[in-house]
Write a protein that binds this DNA or RNA. Sequence first.
DNA 1: CTGTATCCGGGAGGATACTG
DNA 2: CAGTATCCTCCCGGATACAG
Lengths: 133, 133
Amino acid sequence: MYTPKLEKDYRNPLEVGLAFLSGKWTTRIICALANEQPLRYKALKARASGVTDAVLAATLKDLTTHGIIQRQQFNEIPLRVEYRLTDKGTAALPMLKSICQWTQQYNDLAGQVRCGCGQDNCQFDLPTAQQHS
Amino acid sequence: MYTPKLEKDYRNPLEVGLAFLSGKWTTRIICALANEQPLRYKALKARASGVTDAVLAATLKDLTTHGIIQRQQFNEIPLRVEYRLTDKGTAALPMLKSICQWTQQYNDLAGQVRCGCGQDNCQFDLPTAQQHS
DNA sequence: CTGTATCCGGGAGGATACTG
DNA sequence: CAGTATCCTCCCGGATACAG
């Protein structure tokens, strides 16, 4: 189990918000859930390609703790767990969108970056610049 | 000098944009410049209280490289350097604002976090929740 | 005054093995 | 199926000393 030693030094809400999104897999999970809900653990792992169980589980727990996603467990055999965005998580989407747009508007990223979540309608999978201009 | 060994794995513009803002002092410098322009090196250091020269210089160079701030050097004795936001940097402010608002709306941060930039009119110094509701 | 060079610690994130 | 336990690597950010 990981427990931080040093205290964070947040000086305004902006930094707190940024900290929520700073995890390597955080936005990828939000992205996946924004396109398809609910998703099971295994489905999330497939969409966040490259993540290991240890890191995925930690990220999901973190997002759940912060109230961005919701965990629903069904005690079946085999075990089934479904994740979906909370209202807070859904409310974050326009914010993420604005970051995405700013980046595209001021950088030449044409064709260089794709979401890779595997969903054709992924709203963060925007390969061409100025798509939203 | 620091040179990264592993390549970053950006999958969409969102992650690229987030990476710009991920430095510990990045938003603090943008915040300070948003309230007062131009600012000299020493003034920036005072406003981003706690930063060391090595880290401040690295952050400024990074922001300059990414076209978010502009560096103007006057070859006087003693040396004078002024920093200000570029158009790209200014365009980032609404985006930062949206992050700030989302955080405040969905978290109880009343009185807990302040910018500390020392400017009375700092637009990121928002101590009470729902200030923008 | 405005930085750079160098060294260093801590922690996020990853690999692997194992479990209810 | 859906995780946890443990160990480990890599690099960001900080301290200090020094330079143009």
